[in-house]
C-alpha cells in the first residue's frame, strides 16, 4: 500500500503542474495514468500542433509543453504509475483507499482527478459481431506479434499504427491493408514503403473499403468489406486488427458517487472539491459556472486544489503562503541556492 498526501489521476498538463504545486508546499504525491506515457491529450491528440495561449510562451507544440512541465518537476521525486487505470475508490475513516487495475493500492486523504475527458481507450469497430472475436482474433493493439506468423491478417486504418504494423507483419504473414480512402495520414516515408510493398505483392492494399461483416462461428473465418459504399468483397482472414486511434471514456470515475453532468464533475471554485470531501476535480474534467477548457485554467485550479490538500494532509499544521522568489523553504525543496 502506497501512503501519500495526494493522489493525482491523470498525467496531462494539469496533473503535472498540480504535482509541482503539491511538492512546492511540502506534500508528496503519486500520479496514475492509463496511457503508457506522460502528457495526456497534449501527447496523445496533438503532440505537433502549436499552442498559442500558454502565458509567457508565445508558441509551443503539445509535446514541447509537456517537456517543459516535466523539466519543471525534475527537482522533485514524483512517482508515476503509467498504463494503470484507477478502478476503485473507497472511503475509510478520514482517508481514501484507491485501487488500480494493476492492483496497486494507495491510502491518501486527497484524490485529485485531472482526468481530461476520461481515460483513453482504443476506438473499436462498430460491428456488434466483432465483440465476440475481440482479443481472440480481433485486436486493437498488439502484445505478441508472433501469433500472426504464417497467418492472414487484415489491418484497418490509415495512420502510422496501421501502416507500421502492415510493414512489420508483411515479413512473416499475409497482410491485407484496408483503408476508407486513397490518402493515408501516416508519415510520408511509411506511406511510400507501404506502396512499394503493395507493388511487389507483399501487402494486399485495398483502399476505399470499409468493414461490413465478420464471419465465423467459433473461430473468425472471413470478413466482408464494402467498396465505396457499394459492392462487397469477401476476404478469408485469421486475424483482424483495427487502428482507429484512441477515444476518451469516463470509465470507472462514473461510479465514485460524484456529481457528474455531461461527462464533467461539479466542483466549487475555492478548493475545486467535488461533493465528496477530499476528492477534487481540475482541468477539462471539472465544471463550474464560467469554466473554460483551457490549459491555463487547469493550472490555476490545480494550484488551489493543492492548497486544499494541505489542510487534510497536515491537519495540525497551518499553511503559510510563500513566494518561490523569496522563500528559503521552497528554494530548498527546489534544490536551488538561496541568496
Amino acid at each position: 500500500m502506497n501512503k501519500t498526501d495526494a493522489l493525482i489521476i491523470g498525467a496531462g498538463p494539469t496533473g503535472l503542474f498540480t504535482a509541482h504545486q503539491l511538492k512546492l508546499i511540502g506534500l508528496d504525491c503519486h500520479i496514475v495514468d492509463n496511457l503508457d506515457k506522460i502528457g495526456g491529450q497534449c501527447i496523445e491528440l496533438y503532440p505537433d500542433k502549436p499552442i498559442y495561449d500558454i502565458p509567457a510562451i508565445p508558441e509551443c507544440s503539445g509535446k514541447e509543453l509537456i517537456d517543459y512541465l516535466i523539466k519543471q518537476i525534475k527537482p522533485f521525486d514524483i512517482k508515476f504509475h503509467l498504463s494503470e487505470r484507477v478502478e476503485q475508490v473507497k472511503k475509510e475513516k478520514d482517508h481514501w483507499i484507491v485501487k488500480t487495475n494493476n492492483e496497486t493500492t494507495f491510502l491518501t486523504p486527497n484524490i485529485i482527478i485531472a482526468g481530461g475527458v476520461g481515460s483513453f481507450e482504443p476506438r473499436k469497430f462498430t460491428l456488434k459481431e466483432c465483440e465476440k472475436f475481440e482479443n481472440k482474433s480481433v485486436f486493437y493493439s498488439i502484445k505478441d506479434k508472433n501469433i500472426f506468423e504464417g497467418k492472414t491478417v487484415s489491418i484497418f486504418g490509415g495512420g502510422d499504427s496501421a501502416l507500421d504494423w502492415a510493414i512489420e507483419l508483411s515479413k512473416n504473414s499475409k497482410v491485407n491493408l484496408i483503408h476508407r480512402r486513397d490518402d493515408f495520414r501516416g508519415a510520408q516515408a511509411t506511406v511510400d514503403k507501404v506502396k512499394e510493398l503493395a507493388k511487389s505483392g507483399k501487402i494486399n492494399l485495398l483502399t476505399k473499403y470499409q468493414i461490413s461483416d465478420v464471419k465465423g462461428s467459433e473461430k473468425l473465418e472471413s470478413i466482408d468489406i464494402k467498396y465505396d459504399e457499394k459492392e462487397t468483397k469477401n476476404l478469408k482472414t485469421d486475424f483482424v486488427l483495427g487502428f482507429f486511434g484512441l477515444i476518451m471514456q469516463l470509465g470507472p470515475i462514473a461510479n465514485w458517487g460524484l456529481n457528474i453532468d455531461k461527462k464533467t464533475i461539479e466542483v466549487d471554485t475555492e478548493k475545486f472539491e467535488t461533493n465528496q470531501k477530499g476528492i477534487y476535480a481540475i482541468g477539462d474534467i471539472c465544471n463550474y459556472p464560467g469554466k473554460l477548457k483551457l490549459i491555463l485554467s487547469g493550472f490555476h485550479e490545480g494550484a488551489l486544489a493543492a492548497r486544499a490538500c494541505f489542510k487534510l494532509a497536515r491537519p495540525n499544521e497551518k499553511y503559510r503562503f510563500e513566494f518561490t522568489t523569496s522563500s528559503k523553504t521552497i528554494k530548498k525543496r527546489l534544490g536551488v541556492k538561496s541568496d
Binding site: Q41, L45, Y46, K49, V117, G245, I247, M248, K263, D284, K293
Partner: peptide, 13 residues
Amino acid sequence: IDADCGGSMACAT
C-alpha cells in the same frame, strides 16, 4: 454529439 476535444479537430466525436 459529444465533442470531447472541445472543437479543436482532435477527436471525431
